[in-house]
Design a protein around this nucleic acid. Structure first.
Lengths: 341, 341
DNA sequence: CTGAAAGCGCTTACAG
DNA sequence: CTGAAAGCGCTTACAG
């Protein structure tokens, strides 16, 4: 490829100084440069296919229009939809996003932050694959930072999080509204703050209705889930509805039901508190889910960050998003005779 | 945050010139700077927490140690594992990766390339979520570029691709080795070069064995797949084995079998040509898969790219990776009496 | 062995 | 309205 044209090249072609080129191309020509010269400069620039070297611009102006995105792989991969939306929105605002996989190790994260800081990023966006507490490392202290799907226990950094607790409450409500009182809760074995949030939500909803705690069924994976839930469904006082904290556990429930000859939703209702894989909604009958509003969260987070970057302090410390419920064919009303027993 | 220290600050603290600082920190001190001063400089640098501004370094040296990664969302999201490995390997080599979602629109891609070029990236890595033909846009012509999971029909750009055709052949082989002759092929409705590759592979394997073409069953999604495959399994001359081009279609097959009371693998064998979701292997029985070697491809691609960047021309135009097969419980031997009929 | 100077490609006051 | 100059933070020949 031929050498990229510089502002000097454009200036030479027109017969003006670099300064004039810079002013015109940055929209500050009016009142400074004559209309004729402005036109000539614009024309020369496009003729030479001139594009400013952002390295030089940034070095001079101390603004890189670059955002550092820190993320890592969760049990079901990267937070794709959040990243997708975040990148889309930052790009639309003229920013470029440098995305780094910080991995699980803190020193790897420190290195990533260092490297991004060396590149003079304007701000950081931390995107967690699953809701966690995130203590921002000291290295981030001097740079604007916003958290998505994780919250700072110290509340120093603005964060945008889903109301997983509320989502769990709503799921339980949906079932209780339809007469369910014996509810199983199929959860992953791996403990986490997110799991506790969800379990607490279901528990709180049941308690408020005067119902006993849900039957907690832990399982390691899809296979383990099917085995565990089958045992419960064939046992005494089997639940009439199952809430799962994972989409794959919802699938496990559907598979177990099929094996047992149970029909959904006539014999068993199912709701998944997770919908990232868009798997539950694809089953037959489609399984009801609580949605984590990835796109909305990412969009709002980027808007907030851009606002902060332009100097305004939105004075928001934590923004919580509702997790909407999607009622589907997997939820039915408890049959009278079952309720009676 | 306090202002970042510059090389000048370090020089002042020690009492030497900027040049000396630069030389020492770039490992070119030996023979140029006295041992005592080298030590003093190193010490001062670490004391001031000095880190060079890469913007300035790059502007001067015409090297940014930055790679532009172009990718987009496929039917099952971003190519996570390839991105993960690619980023890991480039980071280990001291590069930073700027990842951009180019979306489906060519003008969005052009804009992304432009923006990365403005930032003087050293090279591009194009990572496709699914194997496709990729015609590199003109804008990439001047910059080193490497394709992962896509190939340049014009063969001008080096590419690393999986042998999807071979994987399909191997899947069919696995079944034929166990006596299967009536094989169903459950495919997504959406046509693509990848789908053709896979269908062609199965077809070729059967043809070579003197068997007729597989029974092609198209389906839109998981639900449609279950319906379609159930119709086939209850029809005349039902297949004894099903190969699916998608993991979710494998799940559809498992669900359909369960509903029909068919046992896997006794009554029906299943293989998935896709394994990105790690879903098939989680089912019971675990479904055999053909693996796309994401990590290996990304690793090799990065190695090739770095090699090219250091000036060596590896003179490789297209590197094809074998898609290994994973035999699992879903594949069984055809029962004698079935074969006989 | 060491420092002063030039220059990477820009922007931004500052004179005229 | 316009250009010459300084400077962003580095590296790299080049004199001494």
């Amino acid at each position: 490829m031929a050498r990229r044209a510089t502002a000097q090249d454009v200036a030479n072609l027109v017969g003006v100084s670099r300064s004039s080129v810079s002013l015109v191309l940055n929209g500050r020509g009016e009142g400074n440069i004559s209309a004729a010269k402005q036109l000539a400069i614009l024309e020369a620039a496009s003729q030479l296919n001139y594009r400013p070297n952002t390295l030089a611009q940034s070095l001079r102006s101390h603004r890189t229009f670059t955002l550092g995105i820190l993320t890592w792989m969760g049990p079901s991969g990267f937070p794709q939809r959040m990243l997708h939306t975040a990148c889309e929105k930052t790009t639309a605002a003229g920013f470029v996003s440098i995305w780094m996989d910080t991995g699980p190790a803190p020193d790897q994260e420190a290195q990533a932050i260092s490297s991004l800081l060396d590149r003079q990023v304007d701000a950081f966006l931390v995107v967690a694959p699953e809701l966690v507490e995130y203590d921002p490392p000291e290295a981030l202290a001097g740079t604007r930072t916003l958290l998505i799907n994780c919250r700072d226990p110290g509340r120093r950094v603005t964060s945008v999080v889903p109301d997983e607790f509320g989502g769990a409450v709503r799921a339980a409500q949906l079932l209780m509204d339809r007469g369910h009182t014996r509810i199983g809760l199929l959860v992953e074995e791996q403990p986490s703050a997110l799991r506790e949030d969800r379990v607490a939500g279901v528990r709180a909803a049941l308690a408020q209705a005067g119902l006993p705690d849900p039957l907690l069924v832990p399982a390691a994976d899809l296979r383990g889930g099917a085995t565990a839930i089958r045992a419960v469904l064939t046992g005494p006082a089997a639940p009439t509805a199952v809430i799962t904290t994972r989409e794959r556990l919802a699938l496990a429930t559907v598979l177990a039901a099929a094996e047992l000859g149970l029909h959904i939703p006539e014999d068993l209702s199912v709701i998944s508190l997770e919908d990232g894989e868009r798997l539950a909604s694809d089953l037959r009958p489609a399984v009801a889910t609580i949605e984590r509003p990835d796109a909305a969260m990412a969009e709002e987070a980027v808007a907030l960050l851009l606002q902060e970057l332009t100097g305004e302090d939105p004075d928001v410390r934590q923004l919580t998003f509702v997790c909407p419920s999607h009622l589907r064919g997997s939820v039915g009303t408890v049959r009278r005779e079952t309720v009676g027993r």
